[in-house]
C-alpha cells in the first residue's frame, strides 16, 4: 500500500513546497483520526440521539442510547428508506430541598431522521428498549436483500 502511494506521489509540478507540506499534514490528520476513532469515518450529523447502524444481511439494525426511556415513549416512523425517531427525555424533579452537587444529565425533546442505505419493508418493524438502549430492526425490502446467485456448471 505504501509503495503504491509513493508511485503516484505528485512530487513534481507543484507550485510551492508548502502545497506538499499541506498535503502531508492533511494525510496525517486523516490517518490519526482513523487511529483514534476506528470506524468513525463518516461525518456525524450532530443530531440527538447518536445512532449506530449495522447491516445484518436481511435487515438494518439501528441502535441509540436513550437512558431512562421506555419504548412507548419514543415515536418511531418509517418510510421506504428513512427512519424517524422523536420523543422527549424527562428527568423527574426531585424534592424541593434537594441541593445539587452535580447536574450533568440532560432532559429535552429530540427529533431525528436518517436515510437508510437501502429500501426497507414498511410492514415489519421491531423496536425494543432494554437497559437504556433502543434497538430498531428494519427488515430490508425484497429488492434490497442480497440474493445468492447460483452458477450452474454444465
Amino acid at each position: 500500500m505504501l509503495l503504491r502511494r509513493f508511485s503516484d506521489w505528485p512530487g513534481y509540478g507543484l507550485s510551492s513546497p508548502f502545497d506538499e507540506i499541506d498535503r502531508i499534514r492533511r494525510e496525517m490528520d486523516r490517518l490519526s483520526a482513523g487511529l483514534g476513532r476506528g470506524v468513525f469515518s463518516q461525518p456525524r450529523a450532530g443530531v440527538f440521539p447518536l445512532m449506530n447502524i449495522t447491516d445484518r444481511g436481511d435487515a438494518y439494525v439501528v441502535r441509540a442510547e436513550l437512558p431512562g426511556m421506555k419504548a412507548d415513549e419514543i415515536e418511531i416512523s418509517i418510510t421506504r428508506d428513512t427512519l424517524a425517531l422523536s420523543g422527549e427525555r424527562k428527568i423527574a424533579a426531585e424534592s424541593k430541598n434537594a441541593k445539587y452537587h452535580r447536574k450533568e444529565r440532560e432532559a429535552g425533546k429530540f427529533s431525528r431522521i436518517v436515510t437508510l442505505p437501502g429500501e426497507i419493508s414498511t410492514e415489519t418493524v421491531e423496536a425494543t428498549c432494554a437497559d437504556g438502549i433502543l434497538t430498531v430492526v428494519l427488515t430490508k425490502s425484497e429488492k434490497a436483500k442480497p440474493k445468492q446467485i447460483s452458477i450452474k456448471s454444465e
Binding site: 442510547e65 437512558p67 426531585e94 441541593k99 450533568e104 444529565r105 437497559d131 437504556g132
Partner: peptide, 22 residues
Amino acid sequence: PEVDIFETEKDITLLADMPGVK
C-alpha cells in the same frame, strides 16, 4: 457516565446514565 448528585438532610442521591449496563 453523566451523573446528577444531590443531597437532602437525610441522604445523598446519585443518578448515573449508564446505557447498556445490566
